[in-house]
């Protein structure tokens, strides 16, 4: 079973470190709300295990002036893809 993780707090909350302990191959993580500030954190993003999809919610990224600052490992997606990611994975774990 694969899991989609959502994360909505800025890197200073250190929520990603907890989330990463639960991630496994085939999972995905989507940064939403203040979580999108992770798009600036190359080193943190590299600590995400391989074969885990990493996404950022476009509306939140644009709102915060980050659209041209995203690390390349982030795939920027809108709400439709957010819903689709929920469908593609067996369950959703929210980190907030």
């Amino acid at each position: 079973m694969s899991t989609l993780h959502t994360l909505n707090k800025a890197p200073s909350a250190q929520l990603l470190a907890s989330c990463i302990k639960t991630l496994q191959k085939g999972d995905a993580i989507i940064f939403i709300e203040d979580g999108v500030y992770h798009v600036l954190e190359a080193a943190l993003l590299e600590s995400i295990p391989p074969k885990v999809g990493v996404y950022g919610l476009r509306e939140d990224i644009s709102a915060r002036g980050l659209a041209d600052k995203c690390e390349e490992s982030i795939e920027v997606v809108g709400y439709r893809s957010f819903v689709e990611l929920c469908v593609e994975h067996d369950k959703i774990v929210s980190w907030f």
Partner: peptide
């Protein structure tokens, strides 16, 4: 053991 705990769950309340 965390990954298998999550993996074996139908729902996770976090």
């Amino acid at each position: 053991d965390l990954q298998s705990l999550i993996d074996s769950s139908d729902y996770v309340i976090n």
